[in-house]
C-alpha cells in the first residue's frame, strides 16, 4: 500500500518534495500502529519498499 502511495507522488520531479508528500499522507491517514509497523519494517531493511517510499519512511522514522 505504501508503494501505491509512492506511485502517486512519484510524478513530482523534486524527490524531496515527493518523499515529504508520501510521509505526510501516511501520517495523516494511517493509524499509529500501522506507522509503527512500516517504520519497523524499514529499520529491518525495508524489503520491497520503492526508493521514494523508503525515503518517506525514513522521514517518519526520524520523527518517530
Amino acid at each position: 500500500m505504501a508503494n501505491d502511495i509512492g506511485s502517486f507522488f512519484n510524478s513530482e520531479a523534486d524527490k524531496t518534495v515527493a518523499a515529504q508528500g508520501v510521509a505526510n499522507h501516511i501520517k495523516r491517514y494511517w493509524d499509529p500502529r500501522m506507522r509503527r509497523e512500516i517504520v519497523t519494517h524499514y529499520r529491518d531493511g525495508g524489503a520491497g519498499l520503492d526508493p521514494l517510499v523508503r525515503s518517506a519512511v525514513a522521514l517518519l522514522a526520524a520523527s518517530a
Binding site: R28, Y29, W30, D31, P32, R33, M34
Partner: peptide, 18 residues
Amino acid sequence: AEPGLRIPNMFEAALDGS
C-alpha cells in the same frame, strides 16, 4: 490527535490479534 483504523485496517488488525 492520531487517526484511527479504517475498515480494511480493522480487519487486518483483527487477523494480527490486536
